[in-house]
């Protein structure tokens, strides 16, 4: 089981902050999020990612118990 958390404006747009699911890669997680929320997959794929607090790229594999964070583009304040 992987816990996926979404931050930034994408969370408001897709109406979901957290999803717990079985998945083995970030790419697949994006596909699942698109299915679950009806938001285009590309919106998730363009985020910044972190797994267990470490910044990673889109091609990263996931393991059971991981926490994947998706952060929509942000800046300024």
């Amino acid at each position: 089981m992987v816990t996926i958390k979404i931050y930034g404006t994408l969370r408001l747009k897709c109406g979901m902050g957290q999803l717990e699911t079985y998945t083995d890669s970030i790419k697949d997680a994006c596909r699942l999020l698109a299915l679950a929320t009806g938001t285009p997959e590309k919106e998730f794929r363009r985020c910044k990612f972190a797994v267990n607090g470490k910044r990673v790229g889109l091609g990263t594999k996931l393991s059971d118990g991981d926490e994947l964070v998706l952060l929509a583009p942000s800046g300024g304040g």
């Binding site: 930034g8 404006t9 408001l12 952060l71 929509a72 583009p73 942000s74 800046g75 300024g76 304040g77």
Partner: peptide, 14 residues
């Protein structure tokens, strides 16, 4: 997008 939707508070997570 970000500033209107979340304000400067939107940066806490980032």
């Amino acid at each position: 997008d970000q500033m209107p939707r979340l304000g400067t508070a939107g940066l806490v997570s980032a």
